[in-house]
Nucleic acid binder design. Structure first.
Length: 194
DNA sequence: CTTAGGATCGCCT
DNA sequence: GGCGATCCTAAGC
């Protein structure tokens, strides 16, 4: 049986592993999107995670089946998108932080009011605005329309995936669960030098 | 290049 | 009532 139809990744794996394996995959909404270049992992026993204090109305999807989309509103005005991981009831997810735009670039420019291709999808709020993701997508399957997740066209060298502390959190700042394609100009921010 | 402040509101205590 | 898994603009070095 196929638990994850149309998905190139086993979302039952730990979120840090999924976050790493998502780098280089292509994420599209209605055919618009690009290559994932930056992610962050969140887990249940993780003070920075929305799931840390247990299920609430907002984070309910995080405790649902893996392979679904968890969308939340950030700072009252931006949407951010996650992919749910682990087994049902666990409360783990991967935040999609940045894409290298590859498909529907002109539409993304229009939606963002931004000409610079580097700034179309460089940040979780920008990703959702460019791809047209809103709270209406919360709980939907990653492997079904309007979504598509395609494997990397070429194997991503493990040595090319940078890790570092997550952005914008106040708790668990030392946990290196931010992942990104080293040197990509489409990151939300560069990774700190080792 | 880095830092500061404002926008804006749903969510949880 | 307080606080963000953010973004934009402006100003300083």
């Amino acid at each position: 049986m196929d638990t994850f139809p149309n998905l190139p990744i086993d979302f039952r794996a730990p979120s840090s592993e999924v976050a790493r394996r998502l780098i280089g995959a292509t994420f599209l909404v209605n055919g618009i999107g690009g290559r994932i270049v930056e992610t962050e992992a969140y887990d249940r026993e993780d003070p920075a995670s929305h799931s840390f204090a247990g299920p609430t109305r907002r984070n309910a999807v995080m405790f649902g089946p893996p392979g679904r989309i968890y969308v939340y509103r950030s700072y009252g005005m931006h949407w951010c998108v996650n992919f749910v991981c682990r087994e049902e009831g666990h409360g783990a997810a991967v935040l999609i932080r940045a894409l290298e735009p590859t498909a529907g670039i002109d539409i993304m420019r229009e939606r963002r009011g931004q000409e610079n291709i580097r700034l179309l999808c460089a940040g979780p709020g920008r990703v959702c605005q460019a791809l047209g993701i809103t709270g209406e997508h919360n709980g939907m399957a990653i492997g079904a329309p309007p979504f598509e997740l395609l494997p990397p066209t070429a194997a991503v060298d493990v040595a090319k995936v940078a890790t570092g502390p997550r952005i914008g959190i106040s708790k668990a700042r030392d946990v290196p669960w931010r992942f990104g394609l080293t040197g990509s100009p489409f990151l939300s921010r560069p990774f700190p030098r080792p």
